[in-house]
Design a protein around this nucleic acid. Structure first.
Lengths: 254, 254
DNA sequence: CGTACGTTTGATCTTTCTCAATAATGGTGG
DNA sequence: CCACCATTATTGAGAAAGATCAAACGTACG
């Protein structure tokens, strides 16, 4: 990330995409107090059961929402990408029901919870935009449920790759033909309800079928359209601003 | 439901539980315009892709959120119980990404979307309460993801039975020792990511092990504590007002 | 240069699905 | 009230997807 950019500029872009903000609203957001923290992969942003005092905004790096079962199995239910406000889910609830953890190393801007609550409740335009962001998160999670509940392993992996690529692309974070997957196969397994071993075999299968190429963690889409078909992927549920119901072809094309 | 009750009183109770409302706020909610509709089981409250003009409040009966895959498999991602506002998820998004359908016959109070938007944005106490309700819905869905992604069939069924019983009990809709399950085994399968056949076998298994008794759709808990253990069920994620972190024993006990 | 972590591969085992058929159950029209 | 029909529930047998166990292989990094 360019060091001369305001740390919250990614978040601001994201909010602005939801509702046209006046310059005072924009200033309000950029003037939010915050404290930057540099974090290693694996460190916790929120722990299950805690009362979060800050709402973190991901400046760079990736994070994920996670919950453990009583038997110690992990389930990942969302991946956060730069620009995401990581704690909107907890902003008005006093006990976090899940944990948020860094997937890679990165930077977090901690905004005091009260400051964010204040603008959500009292600045109706900003409030509306931020509510919309949390509703979109829910929409993404609904698709996540469908993915895990009703698709087989190959479909699940193809789907999650498509979702991830499109989300990155919309944020302008992604060279068009492929991307750097910020997670291990084990984490991919925890996100899709599979085993790491099986994820590995499925990835190999997708590669063997000419749908993707892999070099280390880098995924290259050799057949983007076909991969979407395999993964039963349609982007409407991402509620990408400006696209509405029309199916826009993915920009990243040979 | 008593005919002399205000149709929105269940919703009001639900909102009030989230934030202490003054009498003017309470009046604002009860004075929301609405139109009652009687619906049969299976009828749609919202269709995928539609722009909902009303936000339905479930007066009585049950409903569920649902999405279909391209191959036509159904996944249920939430069950709505009386008092729930069914369209909060769509209130600020213009295209519904999922469908909502009646599980049983019942009554819906359709509140114009704009009226609800207005009070959420401009009445900060009500707004806060309603935002909290949608955040709790998200929390329940996160647990739903865990259930489907990381628990085996027996655990999933046990868990969903526990969740349902507790939610009903909190709303005062439920005789303490058991309840009437408002769904078929096929719907239970669509909610848990299993097959109807397997759901049937698991239910039989739970009964054989003395955890539940069944008469038609009625589920009787013969070993409530043990069933929770089997289902890895803890109620914190339901964010039940007044319970906070303390583990309160289920009231319904022999 | 060695250690730790992540990936890859093989062999075997289980859970759950599929297909198919039968039995209840509830609602409906006569 | 009864016979019939459409759902829903139950059961069995066989197939398959994915899990588990175990080991070897790479690669990054201290």
């Amino acid at each position: 990330m360019a060091t001369d950019e305001h740390p919250l500029s990614g978040f601001l872009r994201d909010v602005t995409a939801q509702a046209p903000l006046g310059s005072d609203d924009r200033a309000t957001i950029l003037n939010l107090p915050f404290k930057l923290r540099r974090l290693d992969a694996g460190s916790y942003l929120v722990r299950e059961g805690s009362l979060p005092e800050h709402c973190g905004v991901l400046v760079d790096g990736f994070a994920f929402r996670q919950k453990m079962t009583g038997e110690g199995a992990r389930q990942i239910m969302a991946v956060c990408i730069p620009g995401d406000a990581v704690d909107l889910q907890n902003i008005f609830l006093d006990i976090s029901d899940h944990a948020v953890q860094m997937l890679t190393k990165g930077t977090i801007a901690d905004v005091p919870r009260a400051a964010l609550q204040e603008i959500v409740l009292n600045r109706s335009t900003i409030g509306r935009a931020i509510i919309q962001l949390t509703l979109i998160e829910s929409s993404i999670m609904r698709e996540w449920v469908v993915n895990i509940g009703r698709r087989d392993a190959r479909e699940r992996i193809a789907h999650i790759l498509c979702e991830f690529a499109v989300r990155l692309e919309v944020r302008g974070l992604n060279p068009s033909q492929g991307f750097e997957l910020p997670m291990t196969q084990e984490q991919l397994a925890d996100a899709t309800g599979l085993t790491p071993v099986h994820v590995n075999r499925v990835l190999k299968g997708l590669e063997a079928d000419g749908l993707i190429e892999r070099r280390r963690r880098h995924i290259h889409f050799t057949a983007w359209r076909a991969l979407q078909d395999v993964g039963d992927f349609t982007r409407t549920y991402l509620h990408i601003p400006g696209e509405d119901q029309l199916e826009v072809a993915f920009q990243a094309r040979p």
